[in-house]
């Protein structure tokens, strides 16, 4: 019984969070002074009577709760409204922008994970080399140095001074910058966990058998550290999201971040609201999946 509750809890929690986030997004956007009709009225001439009529027709006179329920009901059918500036359904705009964001995010994540694993295992295998110091350095670097600063410096060096890369529209530099950032968040907890795992009896046995340190690291230590990586996923995911959105804007990639920011500056509220709800829902669902996977990989009862 309790096990069933344990398995059902993350999805239910995710649903509750998505609902709550949708409500927050809805009411924050409704709190913006001026509504759609004001925007349209500013663009074309509308008399006060026409404006009142439009408000009635769009349901803007109803109470906020009723408006939210109406929006939620439509959202469940996949209708999130139309963009004010582009006139297209916001879902379509979001899906058009998503591949660019996913490319950058996934590439950066792969680089970050690879770098973190290499560094952590390397530092473990050679504790007297400069590698453990590098683990610390990458960790502090990722906390302290904003990705967009490195991005600007990178553009200045590689695109303007050396002329090796186009200034905008390419993926390599932003992915590398974000990858190092992700590696910095992962590598220290991973290294700590691996060092603790070294004391386990099965690792001593493996060492006594004379196995190569790399083999011990990969096949005996790393599996015990996997749950840590999953536990970190929510922090890393938020970092990837923030970093991707910023770097997209900096490197002129047509992704979700550019979409949301343009919606924000262009006062395209339906688009902004939907983009935020979609992104937040994605983060919440991935975190719930990571929690379930964590439970599967690490059956020990939670502390």
């Amino acid at each position: 019984m309790t096990r069933a509750i344990g398995w059902a809890a993350p999805p239910l929690r995710a649903l509750a969070l998505i609902l709550a986030i949708s409500m927050i997004a809805f009411f924050c956007i409704r709190a913006v002074p001026g509504d759609v009709v004001d925007v349209l009225a500013a663009q074309g001439d509308l008399t006060a009577a026409q404006q009142a009529e439009m408000r009635q027709a769009m349901g803007l006179n109803a109470s906020p709760i009723v408006q939210f329920l109406t929006w939620g009901g439509r959202a469940l059918h996949g209708e999130f409204g139309n963009s004010l500036r582009f006139g297209k359904p916001v879902g379509e705009l979001f899906l058009n922008a998503l591949p660019a964001t996913l490319h950058l995010g996934l590439l950066a994540f792969a680089i970050g994970l690879g770098l973190a694993l290499t560094l952590a295992l390397g530092a473990l295998a050679a504790p007297r080399s400069p590698l453990p110091l590098l683990v610390q350095a990458v960790n502090i670097w990722s906390i302290a140095v904003p990705t967009f600063c490195i991005g600007i410096a990178g553009i200045l060096i590689f695109s303007i001074w050396l002329g090796w890369l186009p200034a905008i529209g390419h993926l390599g530099l932003p992915a590398a910058i974000l990858g190092i950032d992700i590696a910095g968040q992962l590598v220290k907890p991973l290294h700590d966990e691996l060092r603790q795992a070294q004391a386990a009896p099965h690792v001593r046995t493996a060492r006594a058998k004379g196995l190569h340190p790399l083999r011990i690291g990969l096949f005996h230590l790393l599996p015990t550290a996997m749950p840590v990586l999953l536990a970190l996923s929510s922090v890393v995911l938020a970092g990837v999201l923030g970093g991707t959105l910023t770097l997209e804007v900096l490197f002129g990639l047509p992704g979700v971040g550019s979409l949301a920011l343009n919606a924000m500056h262009g006062r395209d509220w339906p688009l902004l609201q939907a983009t935020i709800v979609f992104l937040a829902a994605g983060v919440v669902l991935i975190n719930a999946a990571a929690e379930l996977l964590h439970r599967l990989l690490d059956p020990r009862p939670r502390r």
Binding site: A25, C28, V32, L241, L245, L272, I276
Partner: peptide, 13 residues
Amino acid sequence: ALPGILLAMLLVA
């Protein structure tokens, strides 16, 4: 659960 950058966009809006 709400990533900081999204929260900031909502608040600023």
